[in-house]
Amino acid sequence: MSRENILNLVLALALLAVPYIAQAAGQPFTITLATRIAILALAATGLNIALGLGGLVSFGHAAFFGVGGYVAGILSSHAFSGDPMLFGLPGSKQMLVVWLVAMGTAGLLGLAIGVISLRTSGVYFIMITLAFAQMVYYFAMSWPAYGGEDGLSIVVRNQFPGVNTMRPMNFFMICYGVLLVGIVLSALIRSSRFGAALQAVRQNDVRVAAVGISPMPIRLTAFVLSAMLTAVAGALYADLNRFVSPSMLSWHMSGELIVLIILGGTGRLMGPVAGAALYVIFEHLLGGLTERWQFFLGLILLATVLFARGGLIGLIAGKVRHG
């Protein structure tokens, strides 16, 4: 087993162990922290498909994260009130339904944003994805039906068959399970033909076109898959907080996801988990000491970019190896 695989396994087991230890030690709040890590890691795993494998620096993934959150909030509010939604469809309190709708909605949004944004590259791509996400943000702000800038509460957390989701430990296990599925899917994609083409497009799209593979459909597919995965994380995040607001859609969120990936290791399978863990731990520890904790996070980010380009995973496991 390679060094990176051992590290990945350790990370996965550590994240699983934390809530059990917390429960035994009577620290229920730590379970929430671990849940937050799992959800942010899932969102970043989604982004990592576009950014890490495809080199598509999307500065607008908050749009997909937030759309996932709003799908959870809107479906559950309709299920609660009994009012039908668009086209007379009923709401739903079932997480499985919520996730599917979140993926579908974000997939369509990702398709629309991707078709236009992927005509550009570099700084222009960063700016145009940001612009689209800000459009979604201001739309949510000014849409009174679902709370506008006040956001939307989810009275009772959505349900999962056979599980009491209101118990923190259960909800953590759901998030952790979905995270594992997301990681396995992204591992499969990475080693597949599609993944080979996608990573080659990042390295040299002229070469890819010269062997007869059109780069655009490859990039677009990656962008849409990436959006769908991030949206599931958004739905879970709304369920965790039992609240969704436009802040989930703001550019801070997009930036946070990119920071997670850089801290953990761009393009590394478990980079998002390592990054999310670091981020939440910093936020918790430094945030307890000072309100200006983000200043110190900035210093750490700076050190990562200057001295440890591969993030935490790169620091421990060395450079990426392509089989």
Partner: peptide, 16 residues
């Protein structure tokens, strides 16, 4: 990558 392109599809997501 070129062999894969020659075989037709790059839209296979699961087989390593």
């Amino acid at each position: 990558l070129a062999v894969q392109a020659g075989q037709g599809s790059s839209f296979a997501f699961f087989k390593p």
